[in-house]
Amino acid sequence: MKRKRAESPAEGLSELQRRIGALLKTQKLAVLSSQGPDGPYGSLVAFAETPDLKQLLFATTRSTRKYNNLCGNPRVALLIDNRSNRESDFYRAMAVTAIGEAREVAAQERETPVSLYLTKHPRLTDFLSSPSCALFCVGVETYLSVSRFQNVQELQIKA
């Protein structure tokens, strides 16, 4: 019965926010879409979210194609979902696409984001502290939430 409320197309803003927040909290990986000189590119990244949902964090080494792409074009989309590769995904899974702009976190402002990121991914401490690794922060502009197969709702973050 709890699910019913969550799935109404007319749910309120706070309910949508709650659902998106809950999904981000429970998921560790996201599919990052970037755009490079040769076209679009998708990759799996470990992400973390700020409590206000306004920013998403992920790390990558600087020798990757995605790093290159982001240097050239910071526009990104991240797909986060809770599918389980079962038939029930078709009506039970929820997917959220975050659209925004990514920028590398500068050395002097790393403390809070690093702490946030490592709280969610403690095993990535060594990876993140490597000089070859870059921490990115995505300023989210819009979340698009898809549930029950085709119902789509949009959560815009005001500038």
Binding site: G12, L13, V152, E154
Partner: peptide
């Protein structure tokens, strides 16, 4: 379900200080 009706009435809030929501697609 009476709950649905209540929910419908509660759905008026669509904007807060930081967020705005919109339904894009319904089945």
């Amino acid at each position: 379900n009476p709950a649905e009706t209540r929910e419908a009435r509660a759905s008026g809030v669509r904007e807060s200080l930081d967020f705005r929501m919109a339904t894009r697609q319904i089945v």
